[in-house]
Design a protein around this nucleic acid. Sequence first.
DNA 1: CATGAATGAGGTTTCATTCAT
DNA 2: AATGAATGAAACCTCATTCAT
Lengths: 187, 187, 187, 187
Amino acid sequence: MRPLRADARDNRARILAAAEDVFGQSPNASTDEVAKLAEVGIATVFRHFPTKVELLEAVLTDRLERLRDRAADLSRDDDAGAAFFGFFTQVVSESASKLAIAEALSAAGTVAGEAAKQAGAGMREAFGVLLDRAQQAGAVRRDAGFPEVYALLVGCSRGATATGLTPEARGRMLGLVYDGLRTGSTS
Amino acid sequence: MRPLRADARDNRARILAAAEDVFGQSPNASTDEVAKLAEVGIATVFRHFPTKVELLEAVLTDRLERLRDRAADLSRDDDAGAAFFGFFTQVVSESASKLAIAEALSAAGTVAGEAAKQAGAGMREAFGVLLDRAQQAGAVRRDAGFPEVYALLVGCSRGATATGLTPEARGRMLGLVYDGLRTGSTS
Amino acid sequence: MRPLRADARDNRARILAAAEDVFGQSPNASTDEVAKLAEVGIATVFRHFPTKVELLEAVLTDRLERLRDRAADLSRDDDAGAAFFGFFTQVVSESASKLAIAEALSAAGTVAGEAAKQAGAGMREAFGVLLDRAQQAGAVRRDAGFPEVYALLVGCSRGATATGLTPEARGRMLGLVYDGLRTGSTS
Amino acid sequence: MRPLRADARDNRARILAAAEDVFGQSPNASTDEVAKLAEVGIATVFRHFPTKVELLEAVLTDRLERLRDRAADLSRDDDAGAAFFGFFTQVVSESASKLAIAEALSAAGTVAGEAAKQAGAGMREAFGVLLDRAQQAGAVRRDAGFPEVYALLVGCSRGATATGLTPEARGRMLGLVYDGLRTGSTS
DNA sequence: CATGAATGAGGTTTCATTCAT
DNA sequence: AATGAATGAAACCTCATTCAT
């Protein structure tokens, strides 16, 4: 499978971007809307993504990979605590304005497509590394397991988005959660 | 607007219950499925709820009112802290098994219908009372504002549901959050 | 599954008739055309026949059942030879003006649907009875097996239709075949 | 109209062969499938055959011309009866395994394209010569007209194919027909 | 010339909603 | 009042055909 022609690759990217936009705003949007926004014919969308599900998965995969890359970058940061909380904050902040990332985060567990699954696993793994390092550095309490911390990441994103939190309130919400994560409960 | 006939009221209730079931499991389900489960004709559904949106809003309103009632009940509890955390825990626990309540909670901000809006406001108000009393009783830190705490309620519900948390992990997640809410940060 | 309402049954019949017409003339016709001819909305067609394949099978089944009934009727005729040749002639004659029956006859072997399969089997069985009786009455040579005689029935229908034979030529074609079927094969 | 370049002629032949294969198996196949099998780009197919209909006609014409050539060859055979029956048998036998030839034979009457029409006429003429000579040689009864004999040729091909006749049954079917064609119609 | 990407028209199917019984 | 049939708009997807490389 040799690389796509230049124009085709451009179109693929345009479609993916359009899909991110469209599905980010209303997850049930039609494929036509994506085509309109991308300024291509409907058939072009289907040439690049043979079914709607595959398009959705591509959007999802794309997002997850970007998150994973960011987490991976941060995992090389010296200050493990700053890295962990910085990532957490960034994800939740962006979700506030991009419903779709939150959807992606939650869908990550439920989706069928192979690529999306792998991207989800990769993202969770990278986040797990951030958490581990933060715990070893003493920045996050040791008895916080991955599943619940991940659920908190997803949940905070969703909650902030769904209730239309102001940036200030969002900051305070994260402050509460971070206090909980840091609390030297027993350890 | 005289009261509905007995059988009609029965039907209305049956339809509402069916809708809760159906939309709880797959939010994009068709109205036919609701009619099937309620064992009434499709036209009967539309007689009681002239449009699908109105049906959805009725489901939502119903749920919100039940939550509000529960919160109102608890607000008469002597132990304000137990009331607040008990309510929070119950909501999140049930959301885990009922996707739709989480949807309802988040939709509460976005929805148009008058009845649903009022129910949402009522529910938030009742929850606000629980929070207030818990804060006055010293069970929850004073600098936690309503918006962020409400966002946490919604978010924890969504996060737990979306990531398929086990009951144990859900308990630990709530433990982290509650520690954050209690933390005697005087500041 | 209680019987359809009167108007629904009418519509079902109208749709079936329209489908017979339309597919009889061009087997690749669209379902829309059927709806147009039947003067119903497209969705009505799909209410009665949930998929296009099922519609096609219903048409086929209908035809096969009519042929089977005719064959069964004739099998009670005293003159077994006249019954056999009469049936053969009638089928071929009508096929000449109704491409679709020929299609049905040939499709009968290849089709998946249970109802259509049974109707095909029933029709072949009824024709087999006609053949048997004609052979026992000495009107058709004994060494003519069912498969080849059935193939001739199908083939004559198709050939007459495909080449646009005049009624006279069709009569002569059948004359040739009948001579072959009667010939006191020396072997 | 100068001759095509060597590679272009190759491609044309490859496409035609592929089309014969593809349409022989499923008459509604897409042009893409032909291109895939021929291992050329879709645009190349359309360069050689500007529309799908023209491609189909080319396939048809090709087949008819081959049949015509075979008939013409046989018309120089000394044994006129053997030539006629041999041709008939060969056509029907091959049709059994190549659905498409039967389609071609029947389509021959109905098709629009000039080339295909001429090829059809040529083929029928060549077959007519075989029939004439066989009749003059006393191998086929004189009162059998061309239209009905041609219809039998087409019909036997179709019937054998459509009912999935075994080679043995096909032989018996042809035996019946040949007996009819030979019968010294005394009556 | 050859290619593969792009396209819009059209096909099948679903669904919220209205009508007739 | 309740039912189930009817409806058209819209969704997903395919395909013959044209354009740009």
